[in-house]
Design a protein around this nucleic acid. Structure first.
Length: 113
DNA sequence: CCGTTGACGCCAT
DNA sequence: TATGGCGCCAACG
């Protein structure tokens, strides 16, 4: 990794590259950034990224595949609706077969800022 | 400058 | 398997 920018930008860069119809986790992103223990920071970055149109925050869920951040969307059900629009089934605020749609940034992400 | 907070995650009960 | 507590690190008041 070679970025020198704010932690937020690093997170956004990763989230931005999440393929359509796929999801990832806060922890995975944090780990990909080298701050595996700071998954919380990823969530914080997402909050800040909420204003950015090119950051699909709805594709980022927690380790259990739960849409913990849906309440931060407007409206709150926008997150689930977008995921379903991409072919991802959401049941009771959690991604169905989450592991199947999981996209590991550490494995496929290529950061070249 | 210091204390609290938070879209998380792991470990101990 | 389910619940609770602690750690981590940056932003906010």
């Amino acid at each position: 990794m070679k970025y020198d920018q704010n932690f937020f930008e690093q997170v956004w860069e990763v989230v931005r590259q999440v393929p359509h119809g796929r999801v990832t986790t806060y922890g995975a992103i944090a780990k990909a950034l080298g701050s595996a223990q700071s998954a919380r920071m990823v969530g914080w970055a997402m909050n800040a990224a909420h204003v950015l149109a090119d950051v699909p925050a709805h594709r980022v869920v927690n380790r259990q595949g739960l849409l913990t951040g849906k309440m931060h969307f407007t409206p709150p059900d926008a997150m689930q609706r977008r995921l379903e629009a991409e072919g991802i089934k959401v049941k009771n605020d959690k991604v169905v077969k989450f592991e199947q749609f999981f996209w590991d940034p550490q494995k496929e992400l290529v950061i070249e800022l």
